[in-house]
């Protein structure tokens, strides 16, 4: 009885955990269909050029529907309203990163970029993907922060940091898998917010902000790593000393 109530409590937790989990990525089979049908995608992609002037609003959506050859009322396809536009922007920008990996290749003979440098570069590329809409980005952030949209937004953020680490060629599959994605998500979200108020040419201030955040994480991560190494070394050395004294442990 107790076990059953416990189980029923755990199950929703597990379902929620699945939200953030990546499932098996197949190389022999095409990826599963995305959240938008082809009609929806055509309307959404036609709406994107209207965002700089009309923002993440229903106006942009209906203008996009008109451009794509559908009637205004077809915006009813999107029960989430303008959030669909935000989501589509996030998704296309994330998937577009894969095409920007060419910039990670260095010239022949030169030293290849490290994983850290690649992550930095891709994060910057992704931030520059917001360049066209950055003056409207606070609207998008407001939409993303609405309670009903928060799960999707967080999932998208997690997917973005996973994509960046994957494209950078990171293959760690231990606890650092989590810490890496968590720290990159925090850095990205903070920098994205900073960028909305940045008026400097070529977003130089944003660049510096991003570099500072990466440096902070490196310092903290390095310190944690050193502490862990010291504890591990001391423990195994102590164990070996005891063993050398003949203690059967």
């Amino acid at each position: 009885m107790v076990a059953r109530t416990l189980l029923s409590r755990i199950r929703p937790l597990a379902a929620r955990a699945r939200l953030f989990s990546r499932t098996y990525h197949s190389y022999d089979h095409p990826p599963p269909p995305g959240p938008f049908s082809s009609t929806e995608s055509s309307i959404l992609s036609a709406s994107l050029p209207h965002i700089p002037s009309h923002g993440f609003t229903l106006t942009s959506l209906s203008l996009g529907a008109k451009d794509a050859g559908y009637i205004d009322a077809s915006t009813n396809l999107f029960p989430q309203g303008p959030f669909a536009l935000v989501r589509y922007h996030l998704m296309t920008q994330r998937l577009g990163l894969a095409e920007k990996t060419d910039s990670l290749e260095t010239a022949e003979g030169a030293k290849p970029m490290g994983t850290g440098a690649k992550v930095k570069k891709l994060t910057w590329e992704r931030l520059m993907g917001n360049k066209e809409v950055v003056h409207r980005w606070q609207e998008a952030l407001a939409l993303m922060a609405q309670p009903s949209n928060v799960p999707t937004s967080l999932k998208e953020l997690a997917a973005l940091s996973d994509e960046i680490w994957f494209l950078s060629g990171d293959t760690s599959v231990d606890t650092s898998w989590y810490t890496k994605r968590a720290s990159l998500s925090t850095i990205y979200a903070a920098t994205e917010l900073f960028m909305t108020t940045d008026k400097s040419p070529d977003y130089a201030d944003t660049r510096e902000f991003l570099d500072r955040r990466f440096r902070d994480v490196q310092i903290v991560g390095g310190a944690m790593g050193s502490v862990g190494q010291w504890v591990g070394f001391t423990a195994s050395a102590g164990l070996n000393v005891l063993r050398s004294k003949g203690v059967r442990i």
Binding site: R18, T23, Y24, H29
Partner: peptide
């Protein structure tokens, strides 16, 4: 032509690995 793996298949493969 290959079809995408179903959600159940991908979930199984992920949890198995």
């Amino acid at each position: 032509r290959n079809k995408p793996l179903t959600q159940a298949q991908r979930d199984f493969l992920a949890s198995a690995l």
